[in-house]
Design a protein around this nucleic acid. Structure first.
Lengths: 142, 142
DNA sequence: TATTGTTATACTCTATAACTATA
DNA sequence: TATAGTTATAGAGTATAACAATA
């Protein structure tokens, strides 16, 4: 690796970290308007795009230990945003679903998040946007 | 906006969130090997690439409120990783610097993080990597 | 008056391990 | 035995506001 490539690698690293903060901070910014924490906001957004989700899958999506997720879901349930439902076929499994209020909040927060991301990405030329989509999806599935 | 573009926008949003988690979770994974939390790991990495940093700038870099940063720096200082230094020219300003131990830890964790990011990005074809670099840097400065 | 940073409080989040229930 | 999820505990991180020191 040449020195120039090393420096560019360094720049790319810092830029990726900055981008990551920017993206996850959106849940914070947007959640505040609904008196939700960043994690609660991401929780309802993650549920609404999937309809209902197993606890285990939610943990993977949000990079949370199962015990941490239990607490997060407890608090969201107390707030009336979601409910737990046992799976009748495999009673070890718990599904997370939105309440009516949770659905309403999730619709708006999720709309806000995607709008903000769209605006961020929309500032790019169309060709860059296409390559970003391709690249990010490839990374995300790697 | 066509429906296809809307769906792709949705996919891009989810992929960006997944990528953001992946990137920030690196600080978690790597810090664990040195018995550091993710935030402590990012703290020493942020300091080492800049030599020394003002509290205010650190807050912007790490997306932290000044009060939260005070606590994080307190704990890192207790652990002997960093020290605070008053700026003699503007005594309101506090600079954060690494101790010898902090420098040693930061060298290794920062090396690990950039290596992991390089590996992640390195799985891409050269052309995608170039476009990602360009795009991410443009987003990060926007 | 504005800026930089700290302190105080209450709450949320996180890591770890031990535990229960189901398969 | 393995899997899905909960509980318990201690510590770390976070939001908010009030505060002190300096410019």
């Amino acid at each position: 690796m040449t020195e120039i490539e090393a420096v560019r690698g360094e720049e790319l690293s810092q830029a990726l970290v900055g981008l990551a903060h920017h993206v996850l901070h959106l849940f914070n910014d947007i959640g505040r308007g609904y008196d939700l924490t960043a994690q609660q906001t991401e929780l309802v957004c993650a549920v609404i795009v999937r309809g209902r989700v197993r606890m285990g899958d939610l943990g993977k999506i949000m990079h949370l230990e199962k015990s941490n997720l239990s607490g997060l879901v407890d608090r969201a349930e107390k707030r009336g945003l979601i409910v737990r439902a046992r799976d009748p076929k495999d009673r070890r499994v718990t599904w997370v679903e939105l309440t009516e209020e949770g659905h309403s909040v999730a619709m708006r927060t999720h709309g806000d998040v995607t709008e903000r991301l769209r605006r961020l990405v929309g500032e790019l030329p169309a060709e860059d946007r296409r390559s970003l989509t391709t690249v990010v999806e490839r990374l995300a599935t790697a």
